[in-house]
Design a protein around this nucleic acid. Sequence first.
DNA 1: CTATTCTTTCACTTTCTTTTGAAAGTTCAA
DNA 2: TTGAACTTTCAAAAGAAAGTGAAAGAATAG
Lengths: 168, 168
Amino acid sequence: MKLAEAKAQFIQTWGSLGAQWGINRTMAQIHALLMIMPDPLSADDIMSELNISRGNTNMNVRELINWGLVERVLIPGERKEYFTAEKDIWRVATEIARERKRRELDPILKTLNQLQDVEGDTKDKHVKAFKDSIQGINKFAHQTDRVINSFVKSEESWFYGTLMKLFK
Amino acid sequence: MKLAEAKAQFIQTWGSLGAQWGINRTMAQIHALLMIMPDPLSADDIMSELNISRGNTNMNVRELINWGLVERVLIPGERKEYFTAEKDIWRVATEIARERKRRELDPILKTLNQLQDVEGDTKDKHVKAFKDSIQGINKFAHQTDRVINSFVKSEESWFYGTLMKLFK
DNA sequence: CTATTCTTTCACTTTCTTTTGAAAGTTCAA
DNA sequence: TTGAACTTTCAAAAGAAAGTGAAAGAATAG
């Protein structure tokens, strides 16, 4: 397989992967592109590599920067801004975990905690079933929260000690 | 908070949670509804609880059954089909993990393996950067695969031994 | 066998997301 | 201060995804 072909396929695979995970396709593609390029790219480079508009490029690069997955790079003597992506996939994974936790899990924990105290007779089976479900989910969510926290700041944690070294 | 209100809020929260994770909102809502109901519901019950059409109900219930999250229940003497959801959240989590792995991770592993052998001079920095990226991601994906496998059939694994008992 | 009750399918509609591109904004060298 | 080079914004258009409901299909009771 030729490099150009492989590159194209990787970008497209990473793109649809992102789409499945609720991340927009273009954003994932830009990320893929930047991951495999040895040097930083400008907005124009990205536009022409992926055939997307200027606005789209700008929006998604900005979003990637918010996620902490891409960085602005200034090249001395150049007017343009350039962009690079984190290339260590473990860091990428922890950044994503951190961000999704913040955006998704944290609000859910808040809601679940509120739903714990439904008023009503526990002898009513509907009330009981509801309370049981919520309690189970709530416990699970808190446990998940702990696991993710450990993963995100792995260096200091048992998670790193136990899991990471088995793999990395 | 009254039961009815809490129920509605739970269903809506679970629904948008699903949406963020690439699962369609209605599917997640039906699942939420069935999780908190003590007894099985019929298609009509679901339709009226969630205000959705017959076709939509049917499609999403079928999909939930494919995921292994919902079961058909036959009630003796009744013509209608009824549905229940798995209520143990740990089982729910492992079912989801299993299913997403099958649908998402497995195909990616296949693609990555192919992309490993790009022809070209490793002294070319573009080729080198590409190969390095793919290799890193591939390793990571395989490791993820192992973790998920352990999680999915947890009873027999070190994963269960080490992690689960810390939490459950 | 036929009527009745329930389930499934699918072409069409609606809703939600993403993309575009032109216009406005910003920065900086001269 | 000006204008060239670049970035950002945003309203409109295109595209994708989900939902509807009527009609066809199954299953069962009588």
